[in-house]
């Protein structure tokens, strides 16, 4: 909309030559900036299909396209296991978050008492805690339970509630007009039926956004797996596995890059499908 306006204006004011220059300037700026951000990724893509010798040179373009590097990665490291662990962690955490955080968010949105704002602030504060701060007591607890080296210490916290998701969902609950709730109450709905049958369908975008956020955060998580799965390679997720892969295959640059490409793909696919939801989700958290 802005665009159409501006173009109209320029066309009335500027002579043709200047308009063309303007057009060129905008395009080249766009392409240059786009390239600047994409260059590292393109570089990785190209290196991933080079031979191992060529990968160690400053060449940018592969002389020989070795697409079998991607297959070799699967032989060199249990990439598939890493992938399964990542999916397991992310999916279980996301589902667990939904089960635990929806009621909590609803409670925070609907229950008003004298200290309700304090309660809310506490949740926000928890959201801002660096994970390293509370890692010590949590780690010793999981070690006592004998569960370090597994994925459980990563997943269980989401089963009891995730501060960021609670915050996000609460913002969505607050947008629902009170009238709907009153109507449902008059009809004799219990508080839980109101939640599950009336409200949930109405905040579907919020649920999708919270799920997407949790999925991305856990998928990207490096500190958690590093701390809790430690030396037990069987529980490694992709991000941890990738960094370890680099340590053991230091010379095989092409393979390291191919492994990197493999970790990027699933998220790009997910994002292409969920782009709208994601943007609506982030803007909703605070702007409404």
């Amino acid at each position: 909309m802005t665009t159409t306006l501006t173009t109209q204006r320029t066309s009335t004011r500027r002579p043709g030559g200047q308009r063309f220059l303007h057009w060129v300037a905008v395009h080249s700026l766009g392409i240059a900036l786009g390239l600047m951000f994409a260059l590292p990724v393109l570089f990785v893509l190209l290196t991933a299909v080079m031979t191992d010798q060529q990968a160690l040179t400053a060449d940018l373009w592969p002389r020989e396209w070795r697409f079998d590097n991607f297959a070799t990665v699967f032989e060199a490291a249990p990439m598939l296991d890493f992938f399964v662990n990542s999916v397991l962690y992310s999916v279980a955490a996301t589902v667990g978050m939904l089960i635990s955080s929806i009621p909590a968010a609803y409670a925070l949105a609907r229950l008003r008492w004298r200290g309700s704002n304090v309660g809310f602030m506490l949740v926000i504060a928890a959201m801002m805690l660096p994970p390293q701060v509370v890692a010590v007591p949590l780690y010793s607890m999981w070690a006592d339970l004998g569960l370090t080296g597994t994925l459980w210490p990563l997943i269980v916290p989401y089963l009891v509630g995730d501060a960021f998701s609670i915050f996000l969902l609460r913002q969505f609950f607050l947008t629902i007009p009170q009238d709907y709730l009153d109507a449902a109450r008059v009809d004799g709905c219990s508080e839980f039926r109101i939640l599950y049958q009336v409200l949930l369908p109405m905040i579907r975008p919020g649920i999708a956004a919270a799920a997407l956020f949790t999925f991305l955060y856990t998928w990207n998580d490096y500190f958690g797996p590093l701390l809790y799965t430690g030396t037990n390679e069987e529980s490694w997720t992709l991000s941890l596995g990738l960094s370890m892969f680099r340590n053991t295959h230091k010379v095989d640059w092409n393979l390291t890059m191919a492994a990197t490409v493999l970790t990027i793909l699933p998220v790009i696919v997910l994002f292409v499908f969920a782009q709208k939801t994601f943007i609506r989700g982030i803007t909703f958290t605070g702007v409404k």
Partner: peptide, 30 residues
Amino acid sequence: LLDRQFLGRGVVRTLLITPFLILPAAGALL
């Protein structure tokens, strides 16, 4: 820039978003 209309806007947007979609660990190694 992306709020304007120009040829190849979709491609540029996709290129620009890529860094956000990469595993931070992978990005750091990269």
